[in-house]
Amino acid sequence: MAILVILGFALVGTVELVLSPRRPWKEVAAYLVLLAVAAAFSVMVTLNPDLPVPQPLGLLFDWLKEIWQGGL
């Protein structure tokens, strides 16, 4: 399954690079990096659907909950 996902992303990447008109190397590089990140992310989620979601604002939320005891 993970291999299929990677192959899919690789296919999309090559097709799009071949079809698109010439672009500056910076844009191509950014595109490739992002595509790699997206592929890695997809593989991670495919392998482990229960991957925890980071809560950067979780602390703030807990604190708010503490001071507002009303509860929702």
Binding site: V12, R23, Y31, S42, L51
Partner: peptide, 23 residues
């Protein structure tokens, strides 16, 4: 990222919402 055109970034970002939704 300092680009004036956004279209070339679309593919990775858009495709990644499928695993994103599951995540």
């Amino acid at each position: 990222l300092g680009f004036s055109d956004y279209r070339f970034l679309a593919t990775p970002l858009v495709l990644s919402v499928i695993p994103g939704a599951r995540w």
